[in-house]
C-alpha cells in the first residue's frame, strides 16, 4: 500500500489504541488541532477526548503524569511537540522515568512511551532544530528509537509499548512527508538491532533517522563513481541495544563512516 511516514505513525497509534484499552495519547494539541505535525489527525474523532487527551503547555506536568499513569497500570503514549520542549520535562524523564526502577530496587518499572519530533533541515531556527537523541542515549534506564523507514514508523510503537521500561521515539521532522510502499500486513518490528538498508562491499556508511534518505542517495552517487557502499541504519541509539551487524559489516568493507543530522560532518571511524 502507498503511504507516508506520518500516516504510518498514525496507523501505529490507531492499532495500539484498538489493541489495548490501557493505551492513550496525551500531549499538546494532539486532539482538536490534530497534532503539531498532524500525526494524530482524526484520532480524536475516532477515540474520544479521554484517550486522545489535549494537555496544557506543561511538559513537566504531563510527562510526569504519563509516568504516574504508567505506574498506575496504563500504557500512555506522551507526545512532546519537539525535542527542544522536552528539555522542560527533563526532570521527569531523567529523575523519575529512567530512575524509578533502580531506586525502588526493581519494584516500579515505567512502561511509558514518549514520542517527539527531532532534527534540523526545515529552516525552523535554532530552537526548533536540535537533535538531542544522542544526549538522551546517555541516560541509563531509557531506550531510544529512531524510526527512519515507513516500516519502522509503523512497527516500532507497539514494540515500544510492550517494553517494560520507558522508551523515547524520535521522529525526524523531515521524514513526515516521505512517501513509499508499505506491506499491507506491516506490523510490530523488533527494536533491538541495526539494519542493513543497502548491502555493499567497499565502505560502510552508518546513520539513523532523518539522515538515512540522504545517505542512501549518497550511496547511489558513490555507486556511480564505482564505490559499492553498504548503508546501515542504527534504528536505535544507545546502550540498551546490541549492534552485531556493525562489526560484521566493517569486517566486510574495511572502513566505516558515521553521519547524522546535527553532526557537523561525517566522521571516519576506521
Amino acid at each position: 500500500m502507498k503511504t507516508t511516514y506520518r500516516e504510518a505513525l498514525r496507523a501505529a497509534l490507531r492499532d495500539a489504541l484498538e489493541r489495548d484499552g490501557r493505551v492513550f495519547l496525551m500531549g499538546e494539541d494532539v486532539g482538536r488541532y490534530g497534532g503539531g505535525f498532524a500525526v494524530s489527525l482524526g484520532l480524536l474523532e475516532e477515540f474520544g477526548p479521554e484517550r486522545i487527551r489535549d494537555t496544557p503547555l506543561s511538559e513537566s506536568g504531563f510527562v510526569g503524569a504519563g509516568i504516574g499513569a504508567a505506574l498506575g497500570g496504563m500504557r500512555p503514549v506522551v507526545e512532546i511537540m519537539t525535542v527542544n520542549f522536552s528539555l522542560l520535562a527533563l526532570d521527569q524523564i531523567v529523575n523519575n522515568a529512567a530512575t524509578l526502577l533502580h531506586m525502588s530496587g526493581g519494584q516500579f518499572n515505567v512502561p511509558l512511551v514518549i514520542r517527539m519530533t527531532t532534527g534540523a533541515g526545515r529552516q525552523l531556527g535554532a530552537q526548533h532544530s536540535h537533535s538531542l537523541e544522542g544526549w538522551y542515549a546517555h541516560i541509563p534506564g531509557l531506550r531510544i528509537l529512531t524510526p527512519a523507514t515507513l516500516a519502522d514508523a509503523r512497527g516500532m510503537l507497539w514494540t515500544a509499548l510492550e517494553d517494560p521500561d520507558p522508551v523515547l521515539i524520535f521522529e525526524h521532522g523531515s521524514l513526515y512527508n516521505v512517501a513509499g510502499e508499505l506491506a499491507d500486513d506491516a506490523g510490530p518490528v523488533d527494536i533491538g538491532t541495526a539494519a542493513i538498508r543497502r548491502p555493499g562491499t567497499g565502505v560502510t556508511l552508518i546513520t539513523y533517522g532523518g539522515t538515512l534518505p540522504a545517505v542512501l542517495e549518497a550511496a547511489d552517487q558513490l555507486a556511480g563513481e564505482g564505490i559499492d557502499a553498504e548503508v546501515i541504519d542504527l534504528r536505535t541509539c544507545g546502550r540498551s541495544t546490541t549492534q552485531p551487524s556493525l562489526a560484521a559489516s566493517a569486517g566486510r568493507t574495511g572502513q566505516w563512516w558515521w553521519t547524522r543530522a546535527g553532526a557537523a560532518a561525517a566522521s571516519r571511524l576506521r
Binding site: 513537566s60 506536568g61 504531563f62 510527562v63 510526569g64 503524569a65 504519563g66 509516568i67 504516574g68 499513569a69 504508567a70 505506574l71 498506575g72 497500570g73 496504563m74 500512555p76 526532570d91 521527569q92 529523575n95 523519575n96 524509578l100 531506586m103 525502588s104 516500579f108
Partner: peptide, 20 residues
C-alpha cells in the same frame, strides 16, 4: 510511591497515578 528527592518532582507523578 516514594521517596522523591527532587523538590516538587512527586506532584506530576501523583497526578498521573490519579489519572490512571
Amino acid at each position: 510511591y516514594g521517596g522523591n528527592a527532587i523538590v516538587a518532582g512527586g506532584l506530576p507523578l501523583a497526578v498521573g497515578l490519579a489519572l490512571a
